[in-house]
Simulated assay, not measured.
Amino acid sequence: MREQLSVLEKRGNTNCFSEANFNHLLVTMKDRTYPEGTHLYWEGDVSDKLYYMKRGRAQITKSTDEGKELIMYMYQSGDMIGQADPFFGSKHSFSAEVLEDSEIGVLEHKDLEMLICQHCDFAIDFMKWMGIHHRLTQTKFRDLMLYGKPGALCSTLIRLSNSYGEPHGDHVIIHKKITHTDLSNMIGATRESVNRMLSDLRKKDAIEYDNGMIVIKDLNMLQGICHCELCPNEICRI
């Protein structure tokens, strides 16, 4: 019981499920451990499972024709990963890589379909989860396409602060070491252009670094550059 409560306390993008429906998920899924560097699935694999992060972190990536890897999403404890597609049997559009040793609950689509058939309120909660997933994708593409690389970078910094940030007075420290290469892969830019844009933000006193961690000093400036629409945190996340 204590283990189940600890899982309930760390829910991420599954907050849309009621406690009863979330318990249905926990009982149905099968626990697996995945070492760092392994893949939950590859782009093109049949989408027949969902994955719940009980412990650890994972990232969703997309490979371009030139071999560059774009980081689409980053997930942590409490998040559910998988193709948000009601038409079971589709193929994954992205790859999912485990970033650290992780404990993950695996939910087969056939078991998910059974839950949806047996519990109509569960079906409604699952539709809410799908809606959050789609809105997250839409807002990310909006940031990448409408306001250039500076807007995409500022949006990414805001999303990182919502996912990993900790307030310190008027500043927010992002307690994850994010390299310039990581940032370039998140916004589809070169590492050199990310270096240049970060230097500009430091000169404007919008950000700084503290022991390798990014510190956001002027959130309003970042929001202005990316034309922030003040989405809720479950949408505005990395």
Rank of each mutant, 00 (worst) to 15 (best):
T139Q: 15
M197Y: 09
L157K: 09
A123Y: 01
I207F: 12
E100D: 05
G165K: 06
S102P: 04
L230T: 03
R32V: 06
Y34F: 15
Y52I: 07
I178L: 06
E103R: 10
K128T: 00
I207S: 11
C236V: 00
T139W: 12
E234S: 02
L144S: 03
V106T: 06
Q138E: 08
N13L: 05
D143F: 09
C236Q: 13
T181M: 08
C120M: 11
L198K: 14
K128P: 00
D48L: 05
N15T: 08
P167T: 04
M127P: 02
G165W: 04
D45I: 07
E103T: 14
D65F: 10
L183I: 03
M213A: 02
G44W: 10
H175T: 03
G188F: 05
N211W: 06
N233L: 14
F22C: 02
I132W: 10
S161P: 01
I81N: 07
D79N: 14
S63R: 14
R142H: 11
D111V: 01
K54T: 02
L219P: 03
A206N: 01
M114W: 08
A84G: 11
N211D: 14
P167H: 05
E229A: 15
I225S: 07
C154P: 05
S18L: 05
Y41F: 15
M186G: 04
K203W: 02
L26V: 06
D170T: 13
F122G: 05
I104A: 00
L40S: 08
F17S: 03
A206H: 01
G224A: 14
L99M: 13
Y73E: 10
E69C: 07
L230M: 11
T33N: 12
L183A: 08
G188I: 00
D170M: 05
I174C: 00
A123Q: 10
C236A: 14
F17N: 03
V106N: 00
L5T: 11
S6K: 15
Y51S: 12
D111Y: 02
Y75C: 05
M197S: 07
L222C: 07
S184M: 06
F87I: 07
F122L: 14
A20E: 14
T38W: 01
I238E: 03
M74A: 08
I178R: 11
N195I: 00
M130S: 01
T38K: 10
F17H: 04
I71T: 13
L198W: 00
I235T: 09
M221I: 13
A20F: 13
H24P: 01
I71Q: 01
H109T: 10
W129C: 00
D79C: 08
M221G: 08
L219F: 06
S193N: 11
N211L: 12
Q83W: 07
L160E: 04
K149T: 13
L26N: 13
S93Q: 13
E103I: 11
T137Y: 10
L136R: 15
E229L: 15
H175W: 06
